[in-house]
Design a binder for these strands. Sequence first.
DNA 1: CGAAACAGCGTAGGACATACACTGAAAGTG
DNA 2: CACTTTCAGTGTATGTCCTACGCTGTTTCG
Lengths: 261, 261
Amino acid sequence: MTAEGELPEDVALLWGLRSGGRRGRKPALTVEDITRAAVRLADAESLAAVSMARVASELGNSTMALYRHVRSKDELLLLMSDAALEEPPTESAPGEWREQLIRWAHDVLTMIRRHPWYRDIPISGPPAGPRNLAWLDRALAALAETALAEEEKLAVVMGLLPLVHGQARLSLDLSAGYAADPESFGEGYARSLARLVDPLRFPALSRVIAAGVFGSGGPPGVDGGGTDRTGPFDELDAEFQFALTCYLEGVAGFIARRAAG
Amino acid sequence: MTAEGELPEDVALLWGLRSGGRRGRKPALTVEDITRAAVRLADAESLAAVSMARVASELGNSTMALYRHVRSKDELLLLMSDAALEEPPTESAPGEWREQLIRWAHDVLTMIRRHPWYRDIPISGPPAGPRNLAWLDRALAALAETALAEEEKLAVVMGLLPLVHGQARLSLDLSAGYAADPESFGEGYARSLARLVDPLRFPALSRVIAAGVFGSGGPPGVDGGGTDRTGPFDELDAEFQFALTCYLEGVAGFIARRAAG
DNA sequence: CGAAACAGCGTAGGACATACACTGAAAGTG
DNA sequence: CACTTTCAGTGTATGTCCTACGCTGTTTCG
């Protein structure tokens, strides 16, 4: 498609622009096939289940066949990280910038929750994959009508990103922990804390414990840790909602100041 | 110390309350030794370098000796995650709640940066380790004088946490990526983007690119990816500062409303 | 002095990523 | 059609990892 000029290897791979000669045996595998199989595996089990051998056998090929299409497992992970992001909705979202960003953050969050392994893939560089950039674009588009400079729009989005990712990671880790050992949450957890936390050493914390905050509302609502996780994350979602609202209120103040001065 | 009653295994381990008989051969290794050695290894190289074999040989023992003190590698990781957190400063911080929380967030951030592997350890449950709770206590203490209910104080802190952790992860991942391949940042990155990003498909994004935002201020300032990373993280720190300010401004509004109503 | 309890060690099994040399198929060239 | 080049997929081997299991030798209690 576009000339492949001098693009970095990784970027070319992400955009499907690996040159590829036209002589020799016809490939039976494509990069897309491999990525899809890996994503399916990760969705069904976990990122740990994604080994080159498993992916290859899932495709009915030998392990080493994959290395013709992918330089290393890290490259495969890179591909997976872009494939996990589904195409963002194209119709422009309704509402002013704040509602749009809230919507965006929730979309990202539920998307990550559909692919819980996403959080375990290390980010090795700035966003470069097509889907990743599509989501970035959508967030920036929400701020298009505001009085912010382009650089400031980016800063707002880049501030939002860790909030969403951090929230996703926290809630998913806790869900996984809860699924693995429900005993360490709720009641039992509260009792352990009460026993261990010395009111002299941890005054503020023990006041919170004494208020019984930890007792009832245990961990996030989890449907069982299965493959498709659309269940209620009410408790933590409320926290996320709160944090998001606070952040955006701060941004609103910033925008108002920009518009005025 | 405190009776070990019915504490969960993990919690007992974290608080150093593993029973341990007094008969038999004297232990040459303690859990603390093992944890310290593992942390030292992770600091010096990476979390991937922390294998049971490496840790054991670092201590001049055989691999399997460690399993007398630790049930699995996951338990060791759990111990490491609490050990990475240094004891928070005990003198109560000056200033009102907002300054204190900013200070707290920066302390946490620099602490994580001193132990970059911290972000790779999966969180398997609610905070239970002594140091972890100490930091939680300090954050809650900052809000002690405010008009918030105990539950709301916790919500404010729990909202702050993903922000800090997400920021830490993002900035460290990017630093690592930059150290591994500086070409994919700055100039080259901007040029790749300009070539790949179709203004029709990504209108908002290409406006940002056209504004030259990506060109100059590339990645975080990194001193080389070595062991001790106290170098300037200026670029991303500014972004973090911005996000933090926005969040806390929202919290301030919330507190004001609580105090009024 | 037994006997029980306990720390550390050696081995072995199963999993992993991947380097390397190989086989055989497709496409171009004469 | 024959021959060569280029490339896809395979098999083997190396070095790493975690950890289950059984053993040896030491310490302390009855």
